[in-house]
Simulated scan of single mutants.
Amino acid sequence: MLEKLGLIALAGAAGTLARYWISGFVYGLAGRQFPWGTATANILGCFLFGLIWQLGEGRMLIRTETRAIILTGFMGAFTTFSTFIFESGGLIEDGRYLTALANVGFQTVLGFAALFGGLMLGRMF
């Protein structure tokens, strides 16, 4: 168990560094008028999540343990947006369109509310 946690932590560190590098590279090319660096990391993360999941679950080319380390560690640090999209996509694939819409709306609206709540609380100190 400790070995698995260590590998998840190492993969997380790699994911963090990859996001930092990719975002910085894209911002250097495109500027900061639009959050292109974050958008690139999020979209690339969604693609990689789908690819890794399919290679592991669908094709059985990536062992379950390895897939968990990559998806939880690397992808979790690279972008949690990919997990959000993957879970919402699963709801759509299951024909649960209203639940998918509710998930997207719920997390988006409450995410903004939490952000601004945190900003307001932080301004009080």
Rank of each mutant, 00 (worst) to 15 (best):
M1H: 13
L2H: 09
L2N: 11
K4S: 06
K4A: 06
L7N: 12
I8K: 04
A11D: 15
G12I: 07
A13V: 13
A13H: 07
A13I: 12
A14D: 12
T16Y: 14
T16I: 12
L17N: 08
Y20L: 14
W21V: 15
S23I: 04
S23K: 05
G24W: 13
G24V: 08
F25A: 11
Y27Q: 09
G28Q: 05
L29S: 01
G31W: 10
R32N: 06
F34W: 15
F34D: 06
P35S: 12
P35Q: 04
W36G: 03
G37H: 02
G37D: 05
G37W: 05
G37I: 05
T38W: 09
T38R: 11
A39C: 09
T40G: 03
A41S: 04
A41W: 04
I43V: 13
I43Y: 05
L44T: 03
L48I: 02
L48C: 08
F49R: 02
F49H: 06
F49S: 07
G50K: 00
G50S: 07
G50L: 05
I52S: 03
W53Y: 09
W53S: 04
W53H: 08
W53E: 04
L55Y: 09
G56V: 02
G58F: 03
L61Y: 00
L61R: 01
L61T: 00
I62H: 05
I62K: 02
R63M: 01
T64E: 09
E65G: 02
E65T: 10
E65W: 00
T66G: 01
A68L: 13
I69S: 04
I69Y: 02
I69D: 01
I70C: 04
L71K: 00
L71E: 07
T72W: 01
G73I: 00
G73Y: 04
F74S: 03
M75K: 11
M75P: 10
M75T: 08
G76I: 00
A77L: 00
A77M: 02
F78L: 11
F78N: 03
T80P: 00
F81D: 10
F84D: 05
F84Y: 15
F84L: 14
I85L: 14
I85Y: 14
F86K: 01
F86T: 00
F86A: 05
S88F: 11
S88V: 13
S88Y: 12
G89A: 09
G89Y: 13
L91R: 13
I92D: 10
E93P: 09
E93C: 12
D94I: 09
G95E: 13
G95L: 14
R96H: 14
Y97N: 12
A100E: 13
L101Y: 14
V104G: 10
G105W: 06
F106V: 05
Q107R: 10
Q107Y: 15
T108K: 06
G111I: 09
G111N: 10
G111V: 05
G111H: 10
F112K: 13
F112D: 07
A113E: 03
G117N: 06
G117Q: 07
G118Y: 08
L119R: 11
L119A: 07
L121R: 02
L121C: 02
R123L: 04
